[in-house]
């Protein structure tokens, strides 16, 4: 029987050293709400678990001087919820993170875990993509940065190199008239996995959309940045024609599969419906900013 070791280092360097040394047997533990479930199911059998929750950079939320945010990869959903300012500036990212699981899960689950788990249906990922989050990664060869949409490589896979850990998410400062929103379609009302998830971030000036980003989840092997949908919104007053064009762009971007969670036809249609609904919420929020 294989032995399981557990480490909870205080520094990133120590964590990376141990993680590198363990090779493919090593696993990072943030909230554990994916990892422990997978271990129980016998899907993964790590030899070493490196718990990153004792590393302060990974568990803090920092408002940067320029008005952006830096969110540690292991910050729990509840901690993000309790931050006095974050939800005002990034209500869409916050609602996406807070949709993960239940109250109990929220006390543990992190956006970093959600991203690194590599599920195309992870709820926080489309919202982070829409927000234009930049991920800081540290590994044996030092630090690098990646746009969040470039982290997932396919179901259960990321573009992280051996020994690399996601450290934090950087969210840019917000111009006036900006906001975001996230919606997902699930058959139940909670404790479910997104059949389609969609995040929109936009900026309005005198009723005209001057900037937009759309992130779309659960309809392809990875979460998608749908630039064609954003282009349809930018320059418009979010009128029906623009919304229909953006919705069509989202449906066109879908490369879903028929599976136990939804059919191709259903997911394709729902992507468009969610685009319209999410954009409406983001726009309403932006008008107040």
């Amino acid at each position: 029987m294989t032995e399981l070791r557990y480490l909870a280092p205080n520094s990133l360097d120590e964590a990376i050293k141990a993680f590198v040394a363990a090779g493919s047997a090593g696993r990072i533990l943030a909230g554990g709400t994916d990892l422990l479930v997978q271990m129980r199911a016998g899907v993964v059998k790590p030899g070493l678990i490196v718990d990153i929750k004792k590393i302060s950079e990974m568990t803090t939320i920092e408002e940067t001087a320029d008005g952006g945010f830096r969110v540690g990869a292991a910050v729990s959903g509840m901690a993000l919820h309790d931050h006095p300012r974050f939800g005002k500036v990034w209500p869409g990212v916050l609602e996406a993170v807070n949709l993960i699981g239940s109250k109990q899960v929220q006390g543990r689950a992190s956006a970093g875990g959600n991203l690194c788990n590599g599920s195309p249906a992870g709820d926080s990922v489309p919202a982070m993509v829409a927000a234009g989050a930049i991920v800081t990664i540290q590994g044996p060869d030092g630090r690098r940065e990646l746009p969040v949409e470039q982290v997932p490589a396919g179901p259960g896979r990321t573009n992280l190199k051996p020994g690399e850990i996601v450290v934090s998410f950087a969210l840019p400062p917000r111009p006036k008239g900006s906001s975001d929103a996230y919606l997902r379609m699930i058959p139940r009302t909670e404790m479910d996995i997104a059949v389609v998830g969609l995040g929109v971030s936009l900026t309005l000036k005198d009723g005209v959309c001057t900037a937009a980003r759309v992130g779309l989840g659960a309809v392809a092997p990875t979460v998608l940045l749908v630039e064609s949908a954003a282009r349809a919104l930018i320059g418009s007053k979010l009128d029906d024609a623009a919304l229909n064009a953006a919705a069509a762009a989202c449906s066109a971007a879908c490369r879903p599969i028929d599976d136990k969670r939804g059919t191709i036809a259903y997911r394709t249609k729902v992507a468009g419906v969610l685009l319209k609904r999410t954009t409406a919420i983001a726009a309403k929020r932006a008008e107040g900013n």
Partner: peptide
């Protein structure tokens, strides 16, 4: 194909 409560969808309270 759905031998668990994630994909075998019994209602939860809020449903």
């Amino acid at each position: 194909d759905n031998p668990g409560f994630l994909d075998y969808r019994m209602p939860v309270c809020s449903d």
